[in-house]
Lab assay of single mutants.
Amino acid sequence: MSGIALSRLAQERKAWRKDHPFGFVAVPTKNPDGTMNLMNWECAIPGKKGTPWEGGLFKLRMLFKDDYPSSPPKCKFEPPLFHPNVYPSGTVCLSILEEDKDWRPAITIKQILLGIQELLNEPNIQDPAQAEAYTIYCQNRVEYEKRVRAQAKKFAPS
Rank of each mutant, 00 (worst) to 15 (best):
G23F: 03
E99N: 08
Y144L: 01
T29W: 03
Q139T: 12
V86K: 08
C93A: 05
S70F: 09
K18M: 07
C93R: 02
F64V: 11
E132G: 08
K14I: 09
K101T: 13
R8Q: 06
E122M: 12
E143H: 10
P46L: 08
E145I: 09
M36G: 04
P28V: 06
N121F: 06
P52C: 10
V86I: 08
G23L: 06
S71C: 10
K18Q: 09
P84S: 07
K101V: 13
P105N: 00
E98K: 14
Q151F: 05
E12M: 06
W16S: 05
F82G: 04
P123Q: 00
G23D: 05
K65R: 13
F64Y: 10
C138K: 14
G23R: 04
E132M: 09
M36E: 05
W41R: 02
T108V: 15
W16H: 04
V92P: 08
P128R: 11
P52T: 13
I45Q: 03
T51R: 03
I45R: 06
L6R: 05
C43W: 06
Q130M: 01
F24I: 06
I116G: 05
K65Y: 09
Q11M: 13
S70T: 12
K154M: 09
R61W: 10
Q11G: 08
E143W: 08
N31M: 13
A44V: 08
I125L: 10
Y68Q: 02
E78C: 07
A10P: 04
P69W: 06
C43Q: 02
I125G: 02
F24V: 05
Q130I: 02
N31F: 09
Y144R: 02
R17Y: 00
T29K: 14
Q11A: 15
F24A: 02
G55V: 07
S2A: 08
K59Y: 10
I45H: 01
N140T: 08
K74G: 15
P72M: 00
R61L: 11
E99V: 11
T29G: 12
W16R: 03
N40A: 15
I107E: 11
K101H: 14
Q111I: 14
V25P: 04
F22C: 01
F155K: 06
R147P: 03
V92W: 04
P88I: 15
A156F: 11
P84Y: 02
C138V: 08
K154A: 12
N121D: 13
A44L: 11
W53F: 05
Y134R: 01
